[in-house]
Design a protein around this nucleic acid. Structure first.
Length: 509
RNA sequence: GUCAGUGUAGCUCAGCCGGUUAGAGCACAGCAUUCAUAACGCUGAGGUCGAGAGUUCAAGUCUCUCCACUGACACCA
């Protein structure tokens, strides 16, 4: 199965922040999960580089928009690499393919009779890149988001006839799984039920944008341009752009994973545009929650933003990926609390999982010549095997539903149970009688194997830590498709165990 | 203002169709222990389940009212 997963195309107005990192990490985990299940994944991320806001930012910095975009885009690319993001595509809306595709798309929409010339007037926020619904005689209105004065504008724009698609969008929203989580679906249904208005897709006098063919002075509105990036991303560099071939490259998207703030664009405007252009609709749109910090909204004005570069340099990808995915329910908002972050990393990763690996391999190495022991028992009861076999399908289902928190909790439970198993069996006592060597081998094999399964199950969310675990278990022959790796008993007796070293050091502060 | 949602131990949250003494993880206190990353394990303390009323043999769990917070929309700026 061909699975196309997208992050939003991040706006390069400023350097990457933790919110976009959160989205991207989640998409990465999801993409890895589907690859491990044997699917062909197209994991798309990228950047949105056009618009007046960027033009103005560049002017302020006294550099060209091109230079500005180049710089920020490279920061994104570098950051994703640092975080082990496994994206297959990185689209920039300044890529030449993209302009061609936008033109083709525009022609299709025009041919459907969905483009009309209109007049847009109203109070405009450059920050939001949108008109605010305010009365004409408002005095010095400001944008509630950007806290900046709005500009009065009256200009000729091209409009997309969204209202034509009222019925089709309504029936799309009847599909229960199109918008997730369900709570946000209701909001969108509510919004649509009040009637959809046509929206403008071009701007006058914005230099930094894609030119609208046949309309001198018009550039495409950034949203129209940016959403189409999901399509142009899929087209290989060495192929000509041809929208009618887009389906052979992986369209429609299996899922768009986005922040809740841009749900409307993805769940209403975007499907309508695709309908107009005669293209398939994405299967699902998931609007995840926002991150706050110590109970406060993160913002530049408060000066409490968490910088992803700082975080990864100080704590490493495993720690942050684990915290973000294991402690926050994906659909809901999450509060980043430093103390909790430190506690959870130390407990879950260092103590529960790390120490399990460490104590088990140490015992095994000491008593069985640095090798995985042979399990000589005939058909003994094995509670760890039973639990592992119950845990695996649960975790797989949770991953499939983007329920990362629940998946993490199941994995952790398996590791804890293995720790408990050791405490109950007390192999360090049994081994004192040489006649117990076989039975101890059996127990240790069970724990090693459980630890291996923990390592395999962690692959989507913690690719780095997972491979450290598996290496220490001497398990180096992993398959691309994890179904085989998830079967009990894959750890081969006699494979040698390297001398252990902590897979993760505790956080001190 | 309209419509949703949330409100359960210090913190983050589970609690399905109502049913014995309300759960988990973390934090905290004590015990035990050495195979291990001062890790693991055990025990304990900690909640009138936002408030009030109602339905019921029985209510975090259903109904109503109110309070607080969050979101969408509207209004106002």
């Amino acid at each position: 199965m061909n699975i196309t997963i997208t992050t939003p195309l991040y706006y390069v107005n400023d350097k990457p922040h933790l919110g976009s990192t959160y989205t991207t990490i989640a998409c990465d985990a999801y993409a890895r999960f589907h690859r491990l299940n044997g699917n062909k994944v197209n994991f798309i991320t990228g950047v949105d580089e056009h618009g007046q806001k960027i033009q103005r930012t560049a002017e302020l910095k006294k550099i060209s928009p091109t230079k500005h975009c180049e710089k920020i885009s490279m920061e994104y690319k570098a950051l994703w690499k640092q975080w082990s993001i496994s994206n297959d595509f990185f689209i920039r809306t300044t890529d030449s393919h993209h302009q061609t595709l936008v033109n083709q798309f525009f022609e299709r929409v025009k041919a459907s009779g969905d483009i009309k010339l209109g007049h847009q007037q109203g109070w405009y926020c450059v920050g939001c890149e949108e008109y605010k619904d305010l009365p004409k005689d408002a005095i010095k209105p400001t944008c509630s988001i950007h806290l900046k004065e709005l500009e009065w504008r009256d200009e000729e724009n091209l409009f997309f006839c969204l209202s034509k698609y009222q019925k089709q969008i309504e029936s799309l929203l009847e599909r229960e799984d199109f918008i997730q989580p369900a709570s946000r679906r209701n909001e969108i249904i509510n919004f649509v039920s009040k009637g959809l208005n046509d929206f403008s897709i071009s701007r006058l006098n914005v230099e930094w944008g894609l030119k609208v063919p046949g309309h001198e002075g018009h550039t495409f509105y950034v949203w129209f341009d940016a959403l189409l990036g999901y399509l142009s991303a899929l087209i290989p560099d060495d192929k000509d752009v041809n929208l009618s071939e887009i389906e052979q490259y992986g369209w429609p998207a299996y899922i768009h994973i986005i922040g809740k703030d841009i749900l409307r664009f993805h769940a209403i405007y975007w499907p309508a545009m695709l309908l107009s252009a005669g293209l398939e609709l994405p299967k699902k749109v998931y609007g995840h929650g926002f991150l706050t910090r110590e109970g406060q909204k993160m913002g530049k004005s408060i000066g409490n933003v968490l910088d992803p570069v700082f975080l990864i340099n100080k704590y490493g990808e495993d720690a942050i990926r684990w915290y973000l995915l294991s402690d926050f329910k994906f659909g809901q908002d999450g509060d980043f609390q430093h103390k909790r972050f430190v506690d959870l990393i130390n407990n879950d990763l260092a103590n529960t999982i790390g120490n399990l690996l460490n104590r088990t391999t140490t015992m095994t190495r000491n008593w069985y010549e640095d090798k995985v022991p042979r399990n000589n028992q005939e058909n003994p009861t094995n509670e760890l095997k039973d639990l592992a076999n119950k845990t695996i399908p649960k975790v797989v289902n949770y991953y499939n539903d983007l329920s990362f928190k629940e998946a993490c909790s199941e994995i952790l439970n398996l590791a804890s149970t293995a720790n408990l198993y050791l405490n109950n069996i007390q192999p360090w006592k049994l081994i004192k009688e040489s006649s117990n060597k076989d039975i101890v081998a059996f127990h240790l094999y069970n724990v090693l194997e459980t630890t291996r399964i923990v390592g395999i199950l962690l692959k989507p969310i913690l690719p780095n830590l997972s491979s450290k675990i598996l290496n220490q278990l001497g398990y180096n022959n992993q398959a691309q498709n994890w179904n085989d790796d998830l079967k009990w008993g894959k750890l081969l007796p006699s494979s040698s165990l390297p001398s252990p070293c902590p897979i993760l050091y505790k956080i001190e502060d």
